[in-house]
Amino acid sequence: MHRSRAYAVIIDVPEEADAAATAFWSGVFGTPAVQSADEPQFKTLAKAIPDLHTALQTVADEGRYHIDIETDDVEAEVARLLALGATKVSQWLNCHVLRAPGGHLLCVIPVHSDQALFDAQARTWP
């Protein structure tokens, strides 16, 4: 058995639109975009969506949204989502990028949230 939950909504922003998109989304949610010290491509929008990490990610690609799913067993969660119809796109470090039916991207990552929040909200899968 393993557990997982929606962890984050990520707004992927093309490099050339970074400044304008950062100002826009910061204004939409009424919170400053804080640059990540560890991952320079990310800016966090604190408390923009309750209980979900919300961030801007600068990408060398088109603008879109994607969801990060955190889990205590990455391989089991990837297998579960593939069985539901997702397809593999790529892997970067411990992040598995999948494409859902319909074309939406999602990432499967190890637990990133506070353990108490994960324990309270994660669903258990066989």
Rank of each mutant, 00 (worst) to 15 (best):
L117G: 01
V108T: 03
V97I: 15
N94A: 15
C107T: 01
G85E: 07
R80N: 10
V97Y: 13
H96Q: 14
L98S: 00
G102L: 07
A79W: 12
A79S: 13
G85R: 12
D114A: 09
Q121P: 00
A122V: 07
G103A: 12
C95F: 09
Q121G: 06
C95Q: 06
V89T: 03
L93Q: 14
K88E: 13
L98C: 03
C107S: 08
C95R: 15
A79K: 13
R99F: 05
Q115Y: 01
A116T: 12
L98K: 00
L117F: 01
V97W: 13
A79I: 07
L105H: 06
L81G: 00
C95S: 11
H112G: 13
L106C: 08
D119V: 03
H96E: 10
G102A: 09
V108Q: 00
S90K: 13
V89P: 00
C95T: 12
I109F: 02
H96D: 06
P101Q: 08
V108I: 15
W92Q: 13
A100N: 02
A83I: 06
L93M: 13
S113G: 03
Q121H: 12
F118T: 08
L81C: 01
D114H: 08
A116W: 04
H96M: 10
F118V: 12
W92P: 00
F118I: 07
R99K: 15
S90F: 13
V111R: 15
L98N: 01
L117M: 13
L105T: 06
L105S: 03
